[in-house]
Design a protein around this nucleic acid. Structure first.
Lengths: 150, 150
DNA sequence: TATTTACTGAGATTGAATCTCATTAGTAAC
DNA sequence: GTTACTAATGAGATTCAATCTCAGTAAATA
């Protein structure tokens, strides 16, 4: 969810996993197998996943390593936090093209759906705040999905 | 952060505490003193406060009661969740006039500042999603405050 | 191959939220 | 006012999320 470039209609990057691995190396971090597995798992998701879900899906990797990898990837702007409405935070990959989405959450069942809106992006990019360097943003719409509303 | 009416420039309600108490009673819930103290505490805040902060500030009230009150108030649309960036969620009162703000969070020190933007509200209200009844929204801008950026 | 040190993982710890259940206290009816 | 009903409460246990510690491991480079 990098603010520059703004959302575009460029195609998402083909190999996010390799892209992330290169950024990690450029940052002076080692190319370790556990961290790469975290990257690969994130690369395989369409939307957000929680840290403990990742930990469950990578039983051979320590929890601390998963959290450390998340922290590093987030610091490098390769992934972003997503408030899934529940108690745990979600994380999802950030496309380097600037292409990204936001989320609609069902307050009843917790269903999360991604959505995109160009007008909204423009309105967000127009916001300025003295004394603050804005780098990322997050928008969550909440309500009820069809199944829960009836 | 009710979606209707949209943000206006009406004055915020004078007595949110009494307003909330009445909505609670209308919902068939009793006018109990512990719950009212939670309401009064929320009424006194300008911005979001976490559940455990509330619990700390109300030492004579059980943690469970604080969480129950929060749940009920949120269900009635009287308060709203705010992602403060950290690990705990914040809550803040919702003004019945529809007047509300969003938040800018410093990723380094956790500083939270409210902001308002009418264009942004309009862009958000224009978003529609088939199969979803959108009721509230939340926008969080992240970055670095002046103190942390230097 | 040796050296350096970033990185890892098991498990302990802290922090946030939820649950349980015996007791208390609003509320309406009398 | 008194009674009966039951929502509401609070202490503490439990579960879930995240962080920390530290001895051992394995990238990277010389």
């Amino acid at each position: 969810m990098s603010e520059s470039p703004a959302t575009t209609h460029e195609a998402p990057v083909a190999d996010w996993s390799g892209f992330a691995a290169d950024r990690i190396a450029e940052a002076g971090l080692r190319r370790s197998s556990p961290r790469q597995q975290v990257i690969d798992l994130l690369a395989a998701q369409d939307c957000a996943i929680t840290a403990l879900d990742m930990d469950d899906r990578l039983p051979r990797i320590g929890r601390a390593t998963v959290y450390r990898a998340i922290e590093q990837l987030e610091q490098l702007g390769l992934i972003q936090k997503v408030d899934l409405g529940g108690t745990a935070l979600g994380y999802e990959k950030v496309d380097p093209s600037g292409h990204h989405h936001h989320h609609i959450v069902c307050d009843d069942c917790g269903l999360v759906e991604p959505f995109e809106d160009e007008e909204l992006e423009q309105a967000i990019h127009a916001v300025r705040r003295a004394g603050f360097k804005i780098e990322t943003h997050e928008v969550t719409l909440r309500g009820h999905c069809q199944a829960c509303d009836s």
